[in-house]
């Protein structure tokens, strides 16, 4: 007989591979969670995802709860809500969660949980604890927004295995450290940004994106990284035609959300003021602006002249190993079909 469970009275089949949180999410049942991240697995630390289970005295964290046949789960009982509210209140109390100026406003899991629980202002407040760390080239760390969920530490150590981030100290003083508690910019961090992508709140964010756009203004476009040959899938976050940030595409082949420093932060060059914007023809040793027709005609005529005088093999071309396939295809087609030579190569071996 098929095994099943009941969540809020609704029946779901189970196959022993999914946690209660996963089953609930797949079926549109909202359970807030702050430390759970799919690819890192359950952490059971934030205690926000608790649910009530018939026959079990304590509330259970749904992220780590593997259902057993016949289990009856309630996700929104008064007891559950009171516990969740307390947890979210505690987190809001112990930091500077000022959404107005936060880069993650509108894309923050703590904010979402607070909103869903109807918490407008925290019930209690204790003083701030940490300074912002802006020492690194691309990543800003704001300890006052950190909820110590540990995702960044796990991501650094288990996903990209760069082994820079750790939890330092303990108890109320627990905070994320780089190496032996160095500023990020002075540490061995290589700015891959995995931690930023894992952060559920505004404790880690991209320096380049500050003030560039709000989550609700963002258009997302998937593309492929222009650097090495791994072919990482990127999610460009755009406001207008401006890249605000780049994330790795979760679940995508081959990189499942991961990127490196170049893939995540090496995008500004397309906006550079030094970009070539017009055809240039060298006249008397100096480049002069020209129209497309002028430049194209000049090249075509010169090529034709050379072909006529010396044959097509007196022309050679090097294609580009960074540009799109379609460009290389057309360049070799130009050389083979229009010019009539196989003198086409690219830096295939470097």
């Amino acid at each position: 007989m098929d095994k099943k469970i009941f969540i809020d009275g609704r029946e779901f089949a189970i196959d022993g591979t999914k946690t209660v949180l996963e089953i609930a999410r797949e079926n549109g049942i909202y359970i807030p969670s702050l430390c759970y991240l799919k690819k890192l697995g359950p952490a059971s630390m934030c205690r926000v995802c608790v649910v009530e289970v018939d026959g079990i005295r304590n509330l259970q964290t749904s992220c780590s709860l593997m259902p057993t046949d016949g289990m009856k789960i309630t996700t929104g009982s008064p007891r559950v809500i009171e516990a969740r509210k307390m947890v979210v209140n505690l987190l809001l109390a112990n930091g500077n969660h000022n959404c107005l100026i936060c880069e993650r406003n509108g894309d923050c899991e703590l904010q979402e949980a607070a909103y869903n629980l109807g918490i407008d202002i925290p019930a209690f407040v204790v003083p701030e604890r940490e300074e912002k760390d802006e020492s690194a080239a691309f990543i800003i760390r704001d300890g006052n927004k950190c909820i110590q969920c540990g995702r960044c530490v796990e991501a650094c150590n288990r996903m990209v295995v760069n082994e820079v981030l750790e939890m330092g100290n303990r108890g109320g003083h627990t905070h994320v450290i780089c190496d032996n508690d160095l500023p990020m910019g002075a540490s061995s961090c290589v700015q891959c940004g995995e931690c930023v992508q894992a952060c559920p709140v505004g404790a880690l964010y991209e320096k380049k994106g500050v003030g560039k756009g709000r989550p609700w203004e963002i258009r997302k476009v998937r593309t492929t990284c222009p650097y090495c040959g791994v072919g990482c899938q990127q999610e460009l976050h755009l406001k207008g035609d401006q890249i605000v940030r780049i994330k790795g595409v979760e679940g995508a082949q081959p990189n499942d959300g991961h990127l490196c420093v170049k893939g995540r932060y090496g995008y500004d060059f397309i906006y550079s003021k030094e970009r070539l914007t017009t055809p240039l023809i060298k006249k008397n040793g100096k480049f002069e602006e020209a129209s497309w027709d002028e430049a194209l005609d000049l090249v075509a005529n010169k090529f034709k002249q050379i072909i006529k005088e010396s044959g097509p093999d007196a022309i050679a071309g090097v294609s580009c190993a960074r540009s799109i396939n379609e460009d290389s295809f057309y360049m070799q087609k130009l050389f083979r079909a229009a010019i009539g030579t196989n003198n086409i190569d690219h830096c295939a071996r470097t």
Binding site: M45, R47, M86, V87, L91, I147, R170, G171
Partner: peptide, 8 residues
């Protein structure tokens, strides 16, 4: 310092 109710 791991879980919120205890730490905070």
């Amino acid at each position: 310092g791991q879980c919120v109710p205890c730490r905070e």
